[in-house]
Design a protein around this nucleic acid. Structure first.
Lengths: 348, 348
DNA sequence: GCTGTCCTTGTTAGCGCTAACATCCCCGCG
DNA sequence: CGCGGGGATGTTAGCGCTAACAAGGACAGC
């Protein structure tokens, strides 16, 4: 039994009847066709307003093949970045008159990816956006032969497909340069997972900046984005320091790991920026309120979403477009400072 | 098993031709009608598999009025909770064979809310889920007279509509009791925004537990979920303490504020749990890696999503269902401890 | 055998909309 | 003054699918 009683039957011919025209004229008005008399158009528009009519998307989709919907596939939206990307995407899509249909994959196997895209195709979405920071996602995407525009977000240039992203390398260089400018002889790095293009690009940026400054390139520590891996890295770094290695500045590939690292340092009696300077990446909402407030790199997800949708629209219109990567910015807070004045490692 | 690439036309009659039946029989097989000869069914199923056929959702929606899509409206998905809720919802929806279409409102005005629901209606979604922790969202929802099931998530019982949620009050009581059990004479509270039902429920739980234990109920401090408001609250609490008030335990309405509060305490020379015990709410991924690791209350968003979808399905089937709120759990870490022996900032 | 009743399958008519074509009317120009 | 042309509108035919009905076949009971 349907709980709704009275309303909602409202089809195009209701509007037509009220405006005293044919349903086709209504359709023309709605779709902004030329060749409709201004007076007629106004009459129809008023009828639409008065009735509160909305065209039925399914019927429209059936005949045009377009739903004005964009599908978004992603893995691992628990992270701050992906969640923000989703928000940015939705905003931009809505602004362009599109809806966003979302699929969160449990794992980025080719099968799961293909299935998601298939479902989107059956759903008649106009295009698919895929967040593909991880290699397996990128690989899975290769296996998909979609009959519609497929654009990749944050694939780190690993794909020739049309793609948008933030320039991770530039962000990493910003962070590294900041530390170098403060007088640190070199900068250590805690990476993200090896199978993340984003993480690798940050490593590259860090290395490039170090090399350009003729600074030694220390062996980096590997994390997996999680605070616990940052904590681990922090302990190991502290150990290296006790062993006599010069560790005065660390660029951590994301804020969560920076947080773990800071905790580990704290336990080891190391404070930022007194003993070590630390830079993160992401600018979590809580970054300014850590102890100490974290210097970090921020990505503009709203802009990213905007460009992604722009690219989709261009593809849909048959236009080629090679969007520039979004440039991240450095936010200097107080987890970074000058090199500690002559300080011999406790043990030595 | 190999779906072919080239000409995407693939309609039901293609399958019918290959299986040597009429398209209607194919439809029957797809929709699991009884009264199809097992042999025929198998033949059709094979044809579907071989061709890689997927029925066109738009056509189906046009005739059935159902898209097997659920619309999800939310405000403010930047927060951890809403993002997790989205993930939980998508998982559950997909498991039930539904897609999720997402709208992120910029502001929860009645107009924006109505517009979102209208768009969903035009999109022929089967139901709408609304995340309505804020009063204006709830109010806006009242203004909506949707011709489809509308279920609310986390409205804190402020709505008579069918709703699912986490028992915020129970979570708050858990936190408060834990602190009381540690020997604290009373527990201070930093609230969330006053226009959030969730926040108010936490206040109520806290107050109820205090009252039940015949503990004094201190004036609470008001925050807005943000770390900075937690920081502010922390400073004010520290001031109260300096002024002689007994402040040994604080229940903060979310982890982000707890984080800010901890930072403020730290600046004031107050450490947890040495001087003050602190409990948060949410269990952010970084909570275990704060200094100190934060005792907090966790909500099970997967379960929440599951129940929400279950409720939607029930409504769709015409069944009544009053789901029980999800019970949160307390995670004891090291930001809480027994009452400091002597109440002097110098401590220990 | 013949009816009646399943069970299985095919045939037909739309769902609400847009595209293509048909029509009508008004106007300018030879 | 009639004819051609183009702008404004209406009519018709599907888009791919499901629901309703129709049709045939098998089998029971008489």
């Amino acid at each position: 039994m349907e709980p709704e009683g009275p309303s909602r039957a409202l089809v195009m011919s209701d509007v037509a009847a009220r405006a005293g025209v044919s349903h086709q004229t209504v359709s023309r008005v709605i779709n902004g066709h030329p060749n409709v008399a201004p007076q007629t158009r106004e009459r129809v528009e008023r009828a639409i307003r008065e009735l509160g009519y909305r065209p039925n998307t399914a019927a429209r989709a059936l005949v045009t093949g377009s739903t004005r919907t964009i599908g978004f596939v992603t893995v691992n939206i628990n992270q701050y970045g992906p969640a923000q990307t989703l928000v940015g995407l939705e905003r931009a899509a809505r602004a362009a008159g599109y809806s966003l249909s979302v699929t969160v994959l449990d794992e980025a196997t080719a099968d799961a990816m293909r299935d998601a895209v298939d479902r989107f195709v059956a759903q008649s979405v106009d295009a698919v956006l895929a967040l593909a920071t991880y290699d397996d996602a990128v690989e899975a995407l290769h296996a998909v032969d979609a009959p519609l525009p497929l654009v990749t977000v944050q694939s780190g240039g690993a794909l020739e497909e049309p793609a948008v992203g933030v320039d991770q390398g530039a962000g990493a260089r910003l962070a590294t340069r900041h530390l170098l400018d403060l007088g640190h002889r070199t900068v250590h790095h805690v990476t993200g997972p090896a199978d993340s293009a984003e993480a690798r690009d940050r490593v590259e940026g860090w290395r490039a900046e170090l090399t350009a400054a003729r600074a030694p390139v220390p062996v980096c520590l590997h994390g997996d984005w999680s605070p616990s891996s940052g904590y681990e890295a922090g302990r190991r770094l502290a150990a290296r320091r006790r062993a006599g290695e010069e560790v005065t500045a660390v660029f951590v590939a994301n804020d969560q790991m920076a947080l773990g690292l800071l905790a580990a340092f704290h336990e080891e009696g190391l404070e930022a920026p007194r003993d070590v300077s630390v830079v993160g990446f992401d600018d979590l909402p809580e970054a300014p309120y850590l102890t100490p407030p974290l210097t970090t790199v921020r990505q503009d997800f709203a802009e990213l979403g905007h460009r992604a949708v722009e690219l989709v629209l261009a593809r849909l219109a048959g236009r080629e477009l090679r969007p520039q990567p979004v440039t991240p910015v450095l936010l200097v807070r107080s987890s970074t400072g000058p090199v500690p004045a002559v300080r011999t490692p406790a043990g030595v």
